[in-house]
């Protein structure tokens, strides 16, 4: 069993600026751990987490795959999150490479079909569209959860890029809630991008029904 990363270096003041790991984080860790064997067997070299926040998830992935076994790139639009990501990595002796950026923007040119493990715990909470768009511009803590109509404002943008980012054996883990319309996400990835989706874990926590989707290329026939 992989322990939950040590986050004792993060303070209350940090959690006023970045998202504090919660049930949605922990179900993602559980899904990764559930896939530990197949993840290790696929020998990933390039891992990319979008919106890494505290760095908890990439640190956990690094512990699962080995710090020196892969490159762990982490993007976040929030500069404080990028700093916290790096600190959480070093606190747990995992080498993470954070950068301040939106989605995969500065990496897309070079990481075409090159990402082995892509991870996104997006701002999935349905809100007013304006609130979500403004939160992305402000790049603060509201941007970590406010998702616009159906909670899909930011996720929609990434879903369009997943197929070009994933390596031949790459996989994408996405956190979603029921209001995001899981069947619609699955249909869209299948029909528009030729990718298979599977719900690998789901759980009710508080008022949320959380899902982890694993999206990958179809095995060649």
């Amino acid at each position: 069993m992989i322990p939950t990363p040590d986050l004792s270096h993060l303070r209350k003041a940090d959690y006023e600026r970045i998202y504090e790991p919660a049930e949605d984080t922990f179900i993602l860790l559980d899904a990764l751990e559930q896939d530990a064997e197949s993840l290790r067997a696929s020998a990933p070299r390039v891992c990319l987490e979008i919106g890494s926040g505290s760095g908890c998830v990439s640190t956990f992935l690094g512990a699962l795959l080995g710090s020196s076994g892969a490159l762990y790139l982490c993007t976040d639009i929030n500069p404080h999150a990028a700093r916290c990501t790096r600190l959480t990595g070093s606190q747990n002796k995992i080498s993470l490479d954070p950068l301040i950026g939106s989605l995969a923007a500065p990496l897309r040119h070079r990481l075409t079909r090159a990402v082995d493990v892509l991870i996104f715990n997006p701002p999935y909470v349905p809100t007013e569209e304006d609130e979500a768009a403004g939160a992305q511009v402000d790049a603060g803590i509201t941007g970590a959860w406010a998702g616009g109509a159906r909670g899909m404002l930011v996720t929609d943008a990434l879903l369009e890029q997943v197929e070009t980012l994933l390596s031949p054996h790459g996989r994408f883990y996405l956190v979603a809630v029921r209001q995001n319309d899981i069947p619609a996400i699955e249909a869209r990835m299948r029909d528009r991008h030729g990718l298979d989706s599977a719900v690998v874990l789901q759980r009710r926590a508080g008022g949320e029904h959380l899902f982890i989707l694993r999206i990958a290329r179809r095995p060649p026939v």
Partner: peptide, 10 residues
Amino acid sequence: SGIPNMLLAE
């Protein structure tokens, strides 16, 4: 501080 800022203005 070792972190690149790759953000662009709108």
